[in-house]
Design a protein around this nucleic acid. Sequence first.
DNA 1: GGGTGCATGTAATGGGTTACATGATTCT
DNA 2: AGAATCATGTAACCCATTACATGCACCC
Lengths: 199, 199
Amino acid sequence: MARRSSSSSEVLLGLLTIQPMSGYDLGQTIRASIGHFWNESYGQIYPNLKKLQAEGLVTSKTERQKGKPDRHIYAITPKGRERLAQWLAVPPQPEVPRNEMLLKLFFGAQVAPAISIGYLERMIAAERPLLDRFQQVQEEIAKNRQYPDAPYWKMAARFGEIELEAHLRWAEESLAELRKLARKAQSPATPPKEKHASH
Amino acid sequence: MARRSSSSSEVLLGLLTIQPMSGYDLGQTIRASIGHFWNESYGQIYPNLKKLQAEGLVTSKTERQKGKPDRHIYAITPKGRERLAQWLAVPPQPEVPRNEMLLKLFFGAQVAPAISIGYLERMIAAERPLLDRFQQVQEEIAKNRQYPDAPYWKMAARFGEIELEAHLRWAEESLAELRKLARKAQSPATPPKEKHASH
DNA sequence: GGGTGCATGTAATGGGTTACATGATTCT
DNA sequence: AGAATCATGTAACCCATTACATGCACCC
């Protein structure tokens, strides 16, 4: 995805406004907080931190550890905050996300309905448990209402919740339709006689 | 986005099951039908078609035109259908889409609320008009109910509709919250006196 | 004893967008 | 007159993931 000038380093700046962190911490934080709409691999994080440091947007200090590699703790500089604010002020371009599951469903007529049904069931099984998480996160944030970040973080979590609910509703609805379709395909033009259908 | 083995050529195979098409047609079709969850640039389409042809998954014939370059019309082969079915049977991996707007909103506390408000307004203005499109598409598909593709295409369109509705609900809700926030920020700890606030 | 987590980093590999090149026709 | 549409294609560039490399500590 060769987005003209990506946001990989800016995310790091943004997260470092919360508190100084190591590359590893940043990875963890990304997964835990913005993981539902943004991902960053370590192969991206570490080199970008070096680049940011070279530009004077972050500073680093080294923490010795026994048995483990040194931790490099990065902190954002005033210049880094400026850069972040600049980037935040640029209107984001609408991007079309690629959804492979939907793509395969779109071509579902080319294979047995059971396959598409399986994908929807998988999706529901994988996503339903996340609903609770989003609600928990919002409650957590609500406890720290005084922080200036709180309302924004809550909106992001709420987005996850609302979108997830929508996806689940869609998946259930589509699942019902596909099952109807699969039944019709099994007994074409046969009135529902039940019991020992075909074999 | 270096997804191990992407689906760029398989989309082309999938669309060619509808009818033989040129690279240009494929680009148009993608935008018109699956554009809300999948995009493909010509820089991707043309080379992939050549690759597919070399593998015997599609054939091409040339149509002469006056004043314009020849049209290369591609058609899927039985081998191509096999490959497509194989790919369709592989369970899609859940992917985390990157949403830059949400990312900027998440860091909204670092800039004036007006900026985030602007992004939400933009988003609503850009996306609301699409709702009608999705409904139209579904009606259109409903007219051709007999085609085996119809139920699957309808589901894809319905996904767009449901997700879009969810996004709009979220955006309106968040907008209201941000406006409240902006008002509070302007008159901190001042009871609502109305009229000629500060200036 | 083996897997998982902590912790950092580099290199290979592959994907994908954008820009460029070309040129006639049709719409504004 | 100039922009947009039709139509194909290539090359440069860059972004991002995955794999690899290293090694201790802790838990089962």
